[in-house]
């Protein structure tokens, strides 16, 4: 448990921005470093709560996943084309992106 105050240095900010794929200026990074530290130190309030043996929850109201039947619904070509055309760069009815290097299949 991080009981001492968290220090967000530039390397940690760079790593986080990179994971989130966000291009940030130096000024933005400096601002967000301060903000994150401040917010996270507020969040440190949580360390006052004893959570030993408490199961973490995802939803306030317990639910179960419902399953649907395996019924395929093919869309008309007109509609699938419409979906692809939402892209700012689609050719041959595919999404064009910068070269993927050494990519997975």
């Amino acid at each position: 448990m991080a009981s001492e105050k968290l220090f967000i240095d530039r390397a940690l900010m760079d790593k986080t921005a990179r994971l989130a794929r966000l291009q940030l200026s130096d000024d933005e990074k400096n601002m967000y470093m301060r903000d994150l530290e401040k917010i996270l130190s507020y969040v440190d309030l949580l360390n006052q709560v004893n959570t030993d043996g408490v199961e973490p929850i995802v939803h306030g109201i317990p639910q179960e996943t419902r399953m649907r039947e395996d019924e395929p619904r093919a869309l008309e070509d007109k509609h699938t084309k419409e979906i692809v055309s939402c892209s700012s760069d689609a050719i041959y009815e595919q999404y064009r992106v910068p070269q993927v290097i050494g990519g997975e299949t």
Partner: peptide, 30 residues
């Protein structure tokens, strides 16, 4: 509910869910 089939023309077996349009949600296939 997009068809699971191989060898079709590109981007035919798609719908708003499997192209991750904003607001779409997953529903599990039994």
């Amino acid at each position: 509910s997009s068809p699971n089939s191989y060898g079709d023309a590109p981007n035919r077996n798609i719908n708003p869910v499997c192209t991750a349009q904003p607001g779409t949600l997953p529903v599990l296939n039994r």
